[in-house]
Design a protein around this nucleic acid. Structure first.
Lengths: 390, 390
DNA sequence: TAAAATTAGTACGAGACACGGACTTAATGG
DNA sequence: CCATTAAGTCCGTGTCTCGTACTAATTTTA
């Protein structure tokens, strides 16, 4: 049986009935593990006999393993099924300062991790990444590598090309096919905020929220949107470029060319500017320093951060109006000051409740971890191994 | 075979392989008609023999009819297939001033149309709608009615409850089940901007755009978002409530409780305010009058509309940053002044191009028509008749 | 004008797969 | 030790797709 995803009627993909059900079972095992065959039959609506056949196939294919027996009040005890953690994904979080590369299992657990400082030149940078991936492959000979999932600080279009990366100087270089050739593994690239959101959705504490946003606050602001459980990419993967939504349309000009972009007022750079403006003619102070100064009670630093928090909250109102998420996660250094500014951000958001429940606002524990885990989701979701036969 | 839509893993829906392929074929016929069985086989990837079986079933079920033969350079001439226009949907565009109710075929063509002024009281209003639907059913005895698709000026949550309707006074009344009981037909309700967007996506001139937004400018501003070909609803159907995104966060207070909402600056009410403020102590002038005054060259009216256009454009920058649509459609009375203000709106949007192609900006020809046609899409997309067996 | 070529659509046997009931296995409790 | 309960397996049946062969209808070519 062939089947076309009606959401993407242009790009036909063929799947047999078995493929669809196998994929369904595998995803149910992933999201519900530990789970018995009988449970799967109940959740999926498939017959127990059908589930047995599919699970046997998944065990043969080394996607699933049997674990300990469960315990029930009466009757035969169920055999728990788990994803086979022998299957692994190489994940990378590319960043101009520190790039992390790690091996993760299919449950998003990181196993061995490297950190490298990549070169500015794209060719040399990619060579370093390829070398690190080769090392990890060599150090883990017992694992079955599914692919490579990479988070990059920039825009990634529908054909997985990096279309802009202001902090990196890597535009217009096809890093995907370079790494694919250099490692022999399938490679998936995605924008950092999007990867982070996907990581939180798959492996984080989102409590079943199917509509959420991750707001990554650094030098700029990036937003990753999950709508109905799926990453929202828009045309050319540019959805969620909220950092350049106008907060004050007549405000100062941003480097993007427009006026009064949100990130002109609510990013780390904005806080640095607020601090600098308050202490006229003082040397530039980096954001990390401002955080430390705030901790030691410096009123100028506290005021700069407060301003940043207020504008962050104001911009979040736009985000709430746009997507009406159940959950907004803030990621970035600023979350270390959550005890001070969380409530300020929150109250700015709650000014715009309209009808409907207000979104929960929580700080992200570790953005880099989420981005790395998001790499696992990228590969499992998009790569054929889990979605098609073999 | 049973199957669960992975995008909604909570709500299991069961479909056999045949159901999936039947549905696929039907949708391909809808989007590609006139189309031959051989064409369908090529597009879908299914075998010609399989398509023949499915098409025969669809003809028996009166979803599809055979039409004239096509013409090819060589070989046997193909039999064209069309959707059976005997199948009909009753569509309604509910509006506090004028409510339109019509019979539409499955291709979105309107057949017979009624216009009524509905009562303020929800029970009485719904009674009027039910009566109109009954009349249309009686006047079209030869048609097979699939259901009723209704556009309402307010929020509709995931369980199809009207959760707010400031212009209507209908909150917290379950109009869906009332109409369903009163007519015996399946009823789908959706917010006006969303219905409009769906209507444009299915039956309008969107030129294959899969990411688009419809901005409905009236007393307030409503936005309907189509992302990857599908309606974006967010939690409780509140996505796209862009009218209440803050354009000037410190601006005047909106009736929603927040400050400086977009619709405070760019709606018809805003233009009325601009006009009133320019002519101090003059009596209030309705928007329609301002449009007429502008046509006759009144400088105050022109200036009020120009201001409205500038703010409309500024807010659209936010929308572009949020969703990166390929196409933005503006609907509302203001489009009658497109020759004057279209370029002003456009230039405000284009200030924020960032990377990636700029969205096309076009006026919607007839918002009410799109909303009525959207009702067809609602029923066909959601109701079981097209998606499940029978 | 007849045969060859080309394309649309149909017929039918083979194989894959889900269903569902019967059966086996493994546990608890009286 | 047997009844009960639930997990998991076995297997016959029916459905559906595939693929090949065939028929139908039309144009081109000999």
């Amino acid at each position: 049986m062939r089947r076309i995803d009606l959401a993407n009627i242009q790009t036909a993909s063929s799947e047999t009935a078995r493929d669809i059900n196998r994929n369904l079972a595998l995803n149910l095992i992933r999201t519900s593990q530990p789970v018995s065959r009988a449970d799967l039959a109940r959740i999926s609506g498939l017959q127990r006999s059908t589930i047995s056949l599919i699970v046997d196939q998944l065990i043969r294919e080394k996607w699933v393993v049997e674990g300990a027996r469960g315990r029930l009040p009466r009757g035969r005890r169920p055999t728990f099924l788990w994803l086979n953690e022998q299957r692994a994904i190489i994940v990378a979080d590319v960043h101009p300062k520190l790039t992390k590369i790690a091996v993760a299992d299919v449950n998003g657990n990181l196993q061995s991790q490297d950190a490298i400082t990549i070169a500015e030149d794209p060719k040399e940078g990619v060579r370093q990444i390829i070398e690190a991936i080769r090392q990890l492959k060599k150090r883990n000979p017992q694992r079955i590598f599914e692919g490579v999932g990479i988070s990059v600080p920039g825009g990634v279009d529908d054909s997985q090309q990096l279309i802009f990366a202001p902090n990196l100087k890597w535009s217009n270089y096809n890093i995907r096919s370079a790494i694919q050739r250099g490692t022999g593994l399938h490679v998936e690239i995605e924008n950092a905020a999007n990867t982070c959101a996907l990581g939180e959705m798959w492996f984080g504490q989102v409590n079943g929220a199917r509509h959420m946003a991750v707001v990554a606050v650094a030098e700029g602001i990036g937003v990753g949107i999950i709508s109905n459980g799926q990453l929202l990419r828009g045309m050319s993967g540019l959805a969620g470029e909220f950092g350049h939504a106008p907060l004050h349309p007549d405000g100062p000009r941003c480097q993007c060319g427009a006026r009064g972009c949100w990130e002109m007022f609510a990013s780390e750079s904005a806080a640095e500017r607020y601090y600098r403006e308050a202490r006229k003619r003082a040397p530039a102070v980096p954001f990390e320093k401002i955080l430390l100064l705030a901790d030691s009670g410096d009123p100028t630093a506290l005021e700069a951060l407060r301003k940043m928090a207020v504008h962050l909250g104001q911009g979040l109102r736009t985000l709430v109006a746009a997507y009406s998420p159940e959950l907004i996660m803030i990621s970035g250094e600023i979350t270390s000051q959550w005890h001070r500014f969380g409530s300020i951000i929150e109250s700015a958001v709650l000014e715009n409740t309209l009808a409907g429940p207000a979104p929960k606002l929580i700080p992200s524990r570790d953005g880099s971890l989420s981005r790395l885990r998001g790499g696992v989701a990228l590969v499992l979701q998009r790569h054929s191994s889990l979605n098609n036969k073999h």
